[in-house]
């Protein structure tokens, strides 16, 4: 895909690169903690998908509402979340955002306008549409953005939610993270149209297909959709194509993915793609790269240390907080 012009500043581009690398480092740390037996729940990684998650969330303002899903570590981080909160979540600690009730990146943050997901794929779409309707009704210019996998896009709520958003002209953006596989199921067994984004026509809304491995491309597409939504022109469906470069979760070796395909997509690792871009633009050299890596290493080390030192919840807290 041709490189588009971008409004991003040099600092922003470097920040995006940092966020891609941070996302990967956070997830690799979670895997380490998992292998050490410290993380006991499921671990769903976004390796190969970081550009879509980071790029989309980076296009939002603080008061825009983000609804991340099960692999959106990058979106949480791009919206301003700390690695520590993510580790606390995986470790099930008392002072984690969900206070040990929900695992991993299933969590909310009121101050950042992030609403966590339930596991039921697609279920957040109508909720995110409702949040967008609330923004519109309250006369605010803010938008809501939700992700969905190409697998999850076959759930009924995809249709009900997107259609409601369309008729309500809700300021809503749905980003399809098409990573070629839903667990073990390849795309040709998931849907029969060429692209998920082809469905946009059926809802009477714009759809855009983008290279999901290029964080700048994703950012620009989402930014455009956000601006459209702010102008009161309604929702947009965006499909970002990429590859899940790991198993479905930490226990899955993804043997069902042909080696050839893996090798091919490894070349489109979002971190490599952005590095090539930055180098071509003369924004990245060994020194800058090293600074970024060292910063990430420091941040992760500190966050892990603090998270591991945090207490587990008191057992009897399990009974609290069912009702407001």
């Amino acid at each position: 895909m041709p490189k588009k012009k971008t409004s991003l500043t040099k600092e922003q581009k470097l920040e995006l690169y940092y966020l891609l690398k941070l996302t990967r480092a956070v997830e690799e740390t979670v895997v380490r903690l998992y292998k050490q037996g410290r993380v006991v729940g499921g671990v769903y990684l976004s390796r190969g998908m970081e550009a879509a998650s980071v790029g989309a969330a980076y296009a939002l303002e603080r008061d825009d509402i983000l609804f991340p899903i099960h692999r959106d570590t990058g979106a949480h981080l791009a919206k301003g979340q700390s690695p520590k909160a993510i580790f606390l979540q995986y470790l099930g600690r008392a002072d984690s955002p969900s206070r040990g009730r929900d695992p991993g990146i299933h969590f909310s943050d009121r101050s950042l306008n992030v609403v966590g997901n339930i596991s039921h794929l697609g279920s957040m779409i109508p909720v995110a549409v409702g949040a967008a309707m609330a923004m519109k009704l309250a006369g605010k210019k803010n938008v809501s953005l939700n992700f969905i996998g190409e697998g999850g896009s076959n759930i009924g709520d995809f249709h009900e939610g997107l259609n409601l958003a369309a008729v309500q002209k809700a300021p809503f953006i749905l980003v399809v993270e098409n990573n070629q596989f839903a667990y073990s199921t390849p795309t040709h067994l998931e849907y029969a149209c060429e692209n998920i984004v082809d469905r946009a026509v059926g809802y009477g809304i714009p759809g855009e297909l983008v290279d999901g491995t290029d964080v700048v491309v994703v950012y620009e597409a989402v930014k455009k959709a956000v601006e459209r939504a702010r102008r009161g022109e309604g929702p947009t469906l965006i499909e970002a194509k990429m590859m899940r470069l790991t198993g479905h979760s930490a226990h899955d070796d993804a043997k069902y993915v042909p080696e050839e395909l893996k090798k091919q997509w490894e070349q489109k690792d979002p971190i490599l793609v952005m590095r090539r871009r930055l180098e071509a633009e003369g924004l990245l050299d060994e020194k800058v790269e090293k600074e970024i890596d060292q910063r990430i290493e420091r941040e992760i080390e500190e966050a892990v240390e603090q998270a591991l030192a945090s207490p587990l919840p008191k057992p009897e807290e399990a009974a609290e907080g069912v009702y407001a």
Binding site: I65, V115, S123, I125, P126, V127, A128, V129, G130, A131, A132, M133, A134, M135, L137, A138, S144, D157, E160, G161, L164
Partner: peptide, 11 residues
């Protein structure tokens, strides 16, 4: 679902 989303944001 939309009612839930609206409820989370002030309605």
């Amino acid at each position: 679902g939309a009612a839930v989303g609206m409820a989370l944001y002030g309605f």
